[in-house]
Design a binder for these strands. Structure first.
Lengths: 241, 241, 241, 241
DNA sequence: CATGAATGAGAATTCATTCAT
DNA sequence: CATGAATGAATTCTCATTCAT
């Protein structure tokens, strides 16, 4: 009767930037140095990589510890050894993934740009990041289904996110000073607005695609949406004369 | 996920507008006539209502059939009798919930309004709907985690969504004709933009709240966000002179 | 996930004499007289017919009361009304089916034939009956899996079967007297031998077919097997000179 | 099938050669070395042994996974660990059981015997095997109720059975050459004939016993039936002068 | 008589986690 | 460190049977 093998159907509908399930270059994972038999760091990273895919594809409850272990170079025991539990592993994945985006935002150096150009750069970066890092988008979505319970427990999480707000505050302040931007905009609200526009088209692309027969994340639409979103944000912040 | 953690911890962190788990007006459900023992419609509706809460709170994999049955007037068996399987029930919930929003959109009669006012009305409706119907937002999110697998199977789903697009097309056309709106906007793209702004602040409120110390769905922010989003959309569509 | 609907695969591998599951001339079942609304006898017969198929195809434990009721003109309630329980229904099916073969054996009138020809006629009848009445063969098989528990309870069963033995005894006696048959053969043993040869090729045709790539019940082999079995029996009973 | 009738009533009505349910020599199973806790081979064998009894006694649908697990040294979980599903276990049982008889047939070395003696030896072996291995007979019967669905899936099954046919072909050829046997006999047909005679008296002994008041598998009849069947086969193959 | 709705007691299967080697 | 084996507590689903209308 073989009911089992639920034939988990992950997300990643053919877009290459999504982590493929079967063999995402597992080969280059053991590169560090000449094939040491026991390399804790490598083992951990390996587990974390596989877990990122599984949690991202299946959600916290949907993910299967066995499925993760199977696609790992090591065994279930190690998974528990390093991360304690399924939830611990999930949390580790979350921290890794959130860490990445904020780190990148730092490298933008928008403070050196003209306010309008800086704003454009920030929006484009945010757009591109979401467009590419679908695991990130999915994990954030999943974590919201969990009521942010796990992110809440993470010490490193809270601090890490303020930097974007500072960046935006700086841009807004300089734009207002230069007479380019309105002076009634709250930085956090603006961040929410930008995030919304960049996140939704990826996060909800499946139902959107089914409902309207058009996958909003399709590469062909990328340039148009990117321009549209930049445009929408700039029209929003710009001072009318 | 400790073994015995039967006590599922749903989402709804204290915000009253989220559907309360225990008794959300169940009282008015058995109104038809005094407590008939055999009332299939009522039984189905009852199951569907409870299931909506459970799936919305826990996700498809996270939801427990037992938990649903327990909070029902009937037994688990009836759930299978009417809906065939956990997934069948989930799908029925999805159809119900999607049906509602589109039905309401019809009642707006924006075609009778001036384009700018019509657009404002549509955005405000969309905002209010998402702000209030958090089960809807959660279920859509969950369904995207599932890759829209279940809405895809629903016949009624696809047809039902075109109406919004027609509404927007009409608004845009009239606005362009009146010299109020730009003429280079695609209706589906605009719908995506509006949805993004209304959906994200609810759907991702938990991680956003944790990250920036401000719950974007908090009632106190509602008016401000509503105005901001209307403003952003109108600035986006309006023709510059 | 729709695990249910086990897609019961009945037996009847394309041989027309096996009762087809979907519509085996159900039409002619309500013939008796001008479509009376309530005809208990007809209802019972209808239930019995459907049940025969289901039990024969699925076995006692494998059969589903729901499946039977569904393919009936009436409802489950009637099934319990007339037959009391699943087991009661099974037993009724068994009695009906056993009744048929013995009745037919009577009509052979082998006592009027020459012993050799009479023996031939008896074997051929037995062969043909098993070859055609596969439901009978299956039900007997099933009942043996049950340890003949239900047949044991049937009053009408025991008496009905002696007649064949009498027929064989008569044939043997006459054959011995005529110097054609050996005189050391037990009638019951001979019946067992004949039954074995006629029953096995039908009852075990599936595993036999799989094991040896040749379905022993295939129409193309029928004539050959019929001749072979008659031959084997006659060689066995015949007196050697 | 009364609700609580948990106490499955197996077949084996008092005949000692049928596998006893409680302890069929389980003692010699854990021989390897003193009660190792971790012995996968033993665990599997143990499960398989118990399952053979349960499936043989109750059929595929009638068997209870819980009942099997209970009489095992392990838990239900291990059953799924090793065999995947109830059906997987059933299939494993089938393969084991079919493997045994063919293996034994090999050991007969009938090719070294005179054709008549070889034929006698083969028939006697077949008789004895069916007479003793009632689990085998029952499982084959059950599998025919299933339409041979599961042996069909077994790779090892098909090849394994040809050997008997080769043995028979060799006997027939040598017998014909020696002027002892007829030359118009098909080996597969002959195998079918022999099987029929040996199988039926065991497989259908219950209904036969009820119908005619004589259990054909009773030890007292064994010698007589054995001789009768050998006789019948030899008369069938022998060349008449 | 007829019928869809309802039900309790199982039955198969799954899952995160721990243990012996 | 590493690994296959083992486990108990759930979890989804099924089934014969009865009840209200």
């Amino acid at each position: 009767m073989k009911k089992g093998s639920k034939a988990a159907e992950p997300d990643t509908n053919g877009i290459p930037s999504d982590a493929p399930r079967k063999d995402n270059g597992r080969s280059d994972v053991r590169r560090t140095d000449a094939r040491r038999k026991y390399d804790p760091e490598q083992t951990k990273r390996n587990i974390l990589d596989v877990a990122t895919q599984e949690f991202s594809a299946m959600g916290l409850t949907g993910a299967r510890v066995d499925a993760i272990a199977e696609r790992t170079n090591t065994t279930k025991r190690m998974l528990y050894y390093y991360f304690g539990s399924k939830e611990g592993l999930y949390q580790a994945v979350l921290e890794k993934v959130y860490g990445d985006i904020r780190a990148l935002e730092q490298d933008l150096h928008v403070s050196e740009l003209d306010p309008v150009e800086g704003m454009r750069a920030l929006v484009e970066f945010t757009f591109d990041y979401h467009d590419r890092q679908r695991d990130f988008v999915r994990l954030v979505t999943i974590e919201n289904i969990n009521g942010a319970k796990y992110v809440e427990q993470s010490k490193s999480f809270k601090g890490r996110n303020v930097t974007v707000i500072h960046t935006i505050e700086d841009l807004l302040a300089r734009g207002v000073a230069a007479g380019q931007f309105r002076n009634d905009i709250d930085a956090i609200d603006l961040h929410l607005l930008i995030s919304s526009l960049c996140f939704h088209r990826i996060g909800n692309r499946h139902t959107f695609g089914t409902a309207f027969g058009r996958d909003p994340s399709h590469p062909r639409l990328r340039a148009r949406h990117r321009a549209m979103i930049v445009d929408a944000v700039l029209r929003f912040v710009r001072k009318e004369d």
